[in-house]
Amino acid sequence: MEHKAHKLEIFRGLWKFKSNQQKIWGVLFFLSVVTIIEVALGILKPEILMNTFLSTKLINWIFIILTLIKAYYIAWDFMHLRDEKSGLQASIVITLIFLIAYLVFILLVEGNYIYDVLYEGFVSWNF
């Protein structure tokens, strides 16, 4: 079976590798750095990041963005999506992004609404 050539660069060509193995270690290094940043932020919890933006704390936005970055590199380099045809990439990624974004939007808005009803209504928190 013929195998396709690997694209041996990440960060849009900023970091180039000589072999596929090297690229794997490079990606591992990057993922580890991101995880360490996440854990450090989670333990330190700097006060300045506790302010809310779009009804979510800044620190949580950072966590979510870092998670999506990690997910991108796992899918693109570990799951070899970088070497697949763009049609395959699109049919996987767009499907998931569209459906998940829809689900997140509808359920979180609904959860927030129920919170408001319970908060402003006559339902006692404790009785």
Partner: peptide, 27 residues
């Protein structure tokens, strides 16, 4: 890949349900 996409939707269903309950009890 078909399986992974559908399984990813299953997991996001669970995690979003978690988010729903969390937003409902946000305080």
């Amino acid at each position: 890949w078909f399986f992974i996409v559908s399984d990813a939707l299953t997991f996001s269903g669970f995690l979003v349900a978690y988010g729903f309950s969390r937003f409902k009890n946000i305080d």
